[in-house]
């Protein structure tokens, strides 16, 4: 594996995402208790865990779609909880892919990919178009550039959503269960796009239930349960040889769905 190369790069650079003592509660319901996470440049971190464990909330706190209740989040040197930070500018550097795609339903694929480039980054129409076409080619959907989202399959919509996020040239990509809403036969295409992205050196935090993807692509796997990070480490160790009982229970349920208990 290429782990030696990435490790040496990791030692010199400070983490691109640094989460310290992150807390989040909705009313009296504490969803995140005390999360600490460093993600280095070019690293792929997969977050696994049962539903309701706070994985998605943690991810959404990184670009402050959810406002954290406490702790600190620094992305690319930007203190995301600093009230003086231009949060809109900061978010352009953090790409986000949602479980439900959230493509703009009234716009074509091309407009989906260019609207934020022109209106937020101030790129010219021609430049935005070039970027959009390049990213659409990356996800293998060049021929759909003039299609409306509603005419695409779920898997195609998700790949367009990835291309839309990439068109902002983000430093980090966040994926919130990107394949959970897909038909099984389209999951593979989306995972392949993400695999290519990881190989190209993109920093990625992926909340997922795809254990095989996590095992193969992730540099590190985080197991969350009840608002805590229960276990974290190299993918092969956490998934292949979990130390904590809760991780073992979860993995045996996910990997052998037919068995009870």
């Amino acid at each position: 594996m290429s782990s030696t190369a990435t490790t040496s790069a990791r030692e010199t650079a400070s983490p691109i995402i640094a989460i310290r003592n992150l807390k989040k509660s909705f009313g009296s319901n504490q969803v995140l208790t005390d999360i600490n996470l460093d993600v280095d440049k070019g690293e792929v971190v997969c977050v696994i865990g049962p539903s309701g464990s706070g994985k998605s909330t943690m991810l959404r706190c990184i670009n402050t779609l959810e406002t954290p209740t406490g702790g600190s989040i620094v992305v690319d040197g930007m203190d995301m909880m600093d009230l003086d930070l231009d949060i809109d500018a900061a978010r352009t550097r953090i790409g986000m892919v949602f479980q439900s795609f959230n493509l703009f339903a009234h716009l074509t694929v091309r407009e989906n990919l260019t609207i934020a480039q022109t209106k937020v980054l101030g790129r010219s129409k021609a430049e935005a178009n070039t970027v959009a076409e390049a990213n659409l080619a990356k996800v293998g959907l060049s021929e759909k550039i003039n299609a409306k989202p509603s005419s695409l399959s779920g898997g195609q919509q998700q790949r367009v959503a990835i291309a839309r996020a990439l068109s902002m040239d983000p430093d980090v990509m966040l994926f919130d269960e990107p394949t959970s809403a897909l038909d099984p036969e389209t999951v593979g295409d989306v995972l392949q796009v993400m695999r290519n992205l990881a190989e190209a050196g993109m920093t990625m935090v992926v909340v997922t239930h795809e254990m095989e993807f996590a095992r193969q692509v992730a540099d590190r796997v985080l197991f969350m349960d009840g608002g805590y990070v229960v276990e974290s480490g190299p993918a092969r160790e956490v998934i292949g040889n979990p130390q904590e009982q809760r991780t073992k229970d979860f993995l045996s349920r996910v990997l052998n769905p037919g068995q009870l208990g």
Binding site: N63, D88, A89, I94, G95, F98, S100, N102, V120, L121
Partner: peptide
């Protein structure tokens, strides 16, 4: 209009 539309727009840096 689904809430996800706003979330996607905000995460692309729109005010």
């Amino acid at each position: 209009v689904p809430k996800g539309q706003v979330e996607a727009a905000r995460s692309l840096g729109m005010s």
